[in-house]
Amino acid sequence: MNDIPLTHILFVSTALFFIGMYGLFTRRNMITMLMSVELILNSVNINFVAFNKYLFPDKLEGVFFSIFVVTIAAAEAAVAIAIIINLYRSHNSIDVEDAGEMKY
């Protein structure tokens, strides 16, 4: 297991972070945007677990943090999906371009 250096794992998590960011900025479907945000949060989880395992194996703070991040991501997704459902009722669409009444 320790044959894989920490930098490899950090590379994966950073790539995941920026893929999530790219998805959030380019996707026009609200559900897909939500999925992109989840990617960002998961990259954070990878970071925490990797740092904890490689650099500070005697403490558990990083692992605990990642558990809390998973929980809160679920709560956030629940509220976001509820809002999207409500938005779909009035707009009949989940495309962000259709929800652009207020600008500038």
């Binding site: 939500l34 949060l41 956030e76 009035s90 207020m102």
Partner: peptide
């Protein structure tokens, strides 16, 4: 309509910023 649009913008930007 505006209320749900506002809520969506708020949850997305706050989720991104907390990310």
């Amino acid at each position: 309509r505006k209320s749900s649009e506002a809520a969506f913008k708020l949850i997305m930007s706050s989720a991104f910023s907390s990310g």
